[in-house]
Design a protein around this nucleic acid. Sequence first.
DNA 1: CGGATGGTTGATAGTCATCAAGATGGGTGG
DNA 2: CCACCCATCTTGATGACTATCAACCATCCG
Lengths: 241, 241
Amino acid sequence: MSDNQKFIVSCQECSLSALCIPKSLSVDEMDQVDAEIKRAKPLQKNGSIFDMGDTFKSLYAVRSGAFKSYSIDESGEEHVVGFFLPGELIGLDAIHMGTHPTSAKALETSTLCEIPYDQMETLSGKIHNLQSHMYRVLSSEIREDQELQMLLGKKTADEKIGSFLLNLSRRYQQRHLSGTLFRLPMARTDIGNYLGLAVETVSRVLTRMQQQDILKVEGKDVEILDTHQLCHVAHNDCSVG
Amino acid sequence: MSDNQKFIVSCQECSLSALCIPKSLSVDEMDQVDAEIKRAKPLQKNGSIFDMGDTFKSLYAVRSGAFKSYSIDESGEEHVVGFFLPGELIGLDAIHMGTHPTSAKALETSTLCEIPYDQMETLSGKIHNLQSHMYRVLSSEIREDQELQMLLGKKTADEKIGSFLLNLSRRYQQRHLSGTLFRLPMARTDIGNYLGLAVETVSRVLTRMQQQDILKVEGKDVEILDTHQLCHVAHNDCSVG
DNA sequence: CGGATGGTTGATAGTCATCAAGATGGGTGG
DNA sequence: CCACCCATCTTGATGACTATCAACCATCCG
């Protein structure tokens, strides 16, 4: 394997998929991006990438495993802000402050790529496509947060859980994994916390959906048996798969 | 007034305050930014800037007045996604798609500056500080959306309204307006929709807070009488003013 | 094996949505 | 300039959804 090919592969595994850059950079440009990336940082379950208040230095691309980001309020309560699957980018909420407003930890044994922000920024000034993509990634995050806000503000427990599962499904599919049979990397508590529901409610909704033959749930493993029905209870757009 | 001075003034009124760029561009750079901006587009109440699905061409900086952004779902329900006050930037959620996922309309007679996106993007490749600021603005939006998610998921009606008022207060202060006495540019319906509450609840909470001498409410005019108490019921950080 | 963590299930109560009706107020036309 | 009207806002009564409390079960790991 030539050096260039090696670069491309690692770049695709790390930054490229993370940054969602499909084919818009030349080999040479990918080379430059890739050179800045520190590869394959492994973490155990519960291992933390950074903590609330830490100085912001890098973005992190999930390579394998899964992460959650969360903050702790004055009264010691945890608030789960998001989950990150392979190919997704962690730390975008820290750029404007210089410090991380949220902590991030591994939900299972995971690996990361570190992308030093200074260097990414400098590089994005030189490579127009990279800048362009960063804008898109940031904008996309904003849009997804808006969707989540709608979910949290206006939907019932069933709709929240349904939409949440469909969202995970979509994200797994995007990474060429099964969208109907997957593992929930996070605890029920985390799901409830994220969706603004009590753990008990999460549990109840999941069993109810199982009884209705919409899902098959076994611990952390979920199989979506009836996508159409799930879309229906979630009040989501049922088109596409 | 020299041409350069004129540029600076309009730039400050429009893009600079909107982009939150305090003193980081040279006069010459501001000149370039400013040249791209189409100035002072006036809109009547309910006048729309763009509609859901429209092609994305420009960002818009609020110059005066106020706007809401919202989407309409399949069943015709409106979902208010955000409010925009003078100095804030509308349309960041559209960058990644090429079309606007939300509509935006004026809540009162307002004026805007249009910032053609293509040109902003090109320019930000040349002016490092502009790129840097765009990243910060986008990141900041992400962070604020996260805060809102916590609000929507975990707070009671009183906390939601309290935090909402404090948020508005802070934003008015940032623009050097009073943070204790201001006008709510949006209808109660919009507030409720935005916070995931029924209009009736918004109304009730406001009158209750008035009875407790935390607020003075007269139609759309609000005066915060007891900031400390308001922070307390909102379960917000009560430091700073 | 035993404690601990995480998950499920049941009973009760609280918050807020919903329905209904009245009050206010700004804008328009006579 | 006033009166009317429609939209917006307020207030009250009832009920639904889901949080909370409590107990039990499963699973993991030392």
